[in-house]
Structures are given as structure tokens and as C-alpha cells.
Simulated assay, not measured.
Amino acid sequence: MIKHPLSRTIRFASLAMVAGVGLAAGAAQAQDKGSVHLAYVEWSSEVASTNVVRAVLEQAGYEVELTSLSAAAMWQSLSTGDADAIVAAWLPTTHADYLERVGDKVVDLGPNLDGTKLGLVVPAYTDVDSIAELDENADTFNGTITGIDPGAGLMGLTEKVVESYEFEEMDLQSGSGATMTAALASAINNEEDIVVTGWTPHWMFARWDLKYLEDPENVYGGAEQINTIARQGLKEDMPEAYAILDAFEWTPEQMGEVMLMNQEEDAEPYENAKQWVEENQDVVEEWLNG
């Protein structure tokens, strides 16, 4: 798997320290409580959850820094202490290799979301129903499985699919989550067949009629969870932030609300997260007082 260099990280400065007399007290409180650094992968699900957690931590008085990384670099930054936490660990299958490598340097806080799924996805109108049928129908899909970023655990599993099913005509093409959904949209608009690497929760299932291909070899495994993982020492350094991260848990439906907001034209994930947090204070209070 390709490890994206840390120099390609995308850093978003916290807005908690915006100048203004009215925010002075809040800024001072944030300074006193310190800064929490969250790493994440550019999956629409993780963009949603990480920005929501950012907004909640800021409500509690913390400054928050976000860094977008490949999956491999995200786990590495957590193990070295460059990141404080992630809410983007897909377990027990997708990120199993990463957890195995750094497990003694991180703390698993358990699931923040249940009910995930991974696999190969096609439009519902596609005649093919099983991964085992793909190679013999390669012409239908131009011999291509449209994937996401090469550092993603899902891509590693899909490479195993290519090997396990002994594909000779089908190749895995890497890209990004955005290029994958763009290709899917184009194919569906033209009523063409396409097979993509997919996962639940994802907004594409709300927008289009899709189906997972059966996986008789069970390479992708069963349903997964998304876990929160913290660096060692965070509980001692920032016990309140640690407690909030530990209490954070929501449903695929709640995540889906934020993900759909993020698909609107000119959407700002951080602004949408703040809006969702403001409108769901009953849920947020459970995390803050968990």
C-alpha cells in the first residue's frame, strides 16, 4: 500500500480563535484547555464524523486541528503522537493491518458507529449479482473496478479479491472517493454498467438505487464498526477531551444526515457539522456528559 507523505496533509486552522471582543472569553478558555489534533481519511463518512467531533470539542472549549491523511499515514501519526485521536478506524477487517502494527501505541475506545459494510457495488439494474461473475462479464465493465485512494484499507481488501477470485480480465483502478462517485454518477446517468469499491454508510446509497455484489469467498468479511482510537497518554493529558471522545457514538442515520448536507453545492463540512451539533444538542449533551 502507498503511504502518502505527511507533507501532503491538509491542515485546517481552528476557527475558535477568530478575533473579536465577543469571542475573547471563549478563545481564552480554548487556550487554557489546549488543542486537540484529529486525523482522518477523506471518506465522506469520516469527513462528517470528524467535523462533528471537532464542533463538539470546540463547544467544550478546546481548539481543534484537523489533518487529512491516507489511512496508513493516519494510523502512523496516531502511533507517534502527532495526532491525538481518530474517529475513523474501520474494524475488525478494513484497518486490521494498521491496528496490528501500532496496537501497543494506541488506545481503542470502542465503536462510535455500528452497522458498516464493505464490498463491490453496482447499479441495481446491473445483471451481475456476484463477484464470482465479474471476470466472465469483464466487457460489461470495461475490465475495470473503479476504486478509491490507494492507501485505503478497502483497496487492500479489493486487491485480495482480485487474487482470491483469480481475475484475469478485471483490473482495480485507484483514484479517490470523489472520482469514484463521479464515475458512478456518469455511468448511472448514461444507464451504463459500472462496478465500484463501496461502503456503508455512504450518501451514494441515498442518492441512487445500488446493490452490493455477493462475496461467496467472504473476502470483505461481515459487518464492521467504526471505532475511536486515541494516542497513548491522551487520557492523562486531556481527561475531559478523552471522555468526550470516549462517549461519542451515533447511528448511520445521524451520520447520513450530515453526509447528505455535505453533498449540497458549495457545502462546507465544518459549517454543516456546527449546524448539526446546534440542532442536536440533546445528543451532544450525552457526549459532553458521558
Rank of each mutant, 00 (worst) to 15 (best):
Q281K: 13
P269T: 14
S130P: 00
V161S: 00
E46I: 04
A25H: 13
Y212Q: 03
M1Q: 09
S164F: 02
A25N: 12
M180F: 01
V56Q: 09
N137I: 08
A88T: 07
T94A: 14
A243D: 08
P239Q: 11
I194Y: 01
N51C: 11
G143F: 00
R54F: 02
K235P: 04
L6Y: 11
S176Y: 06
M180K: 04
Q76N: 07
L234E: 05
G81N: 04
W203F: 15
A19I: 11
E166I: 11
G115E: 12
L213Q: 05
P5N: 14
F12N: 01
I148W: 02
P201Q: 06
L157C: 00
P269M: 10
M261S: 12
E224Y: 02
I244R: 02
M155N: 07
L213F: 04
K211G: 00
D97C: 05
S79G: 13
I226A: 01
E133C: 10
A72W: 08
P111R: 04
E224G: 11
L260Q: 14
G34C: 06
G177M: 03
R101E: 14
D114K: 06
I2P: 06
W250F: 12
L99S: 06
I131A: 02
A243E: 15
G256N: 15
T140G: 00
Q173P: 04
G177W: 04
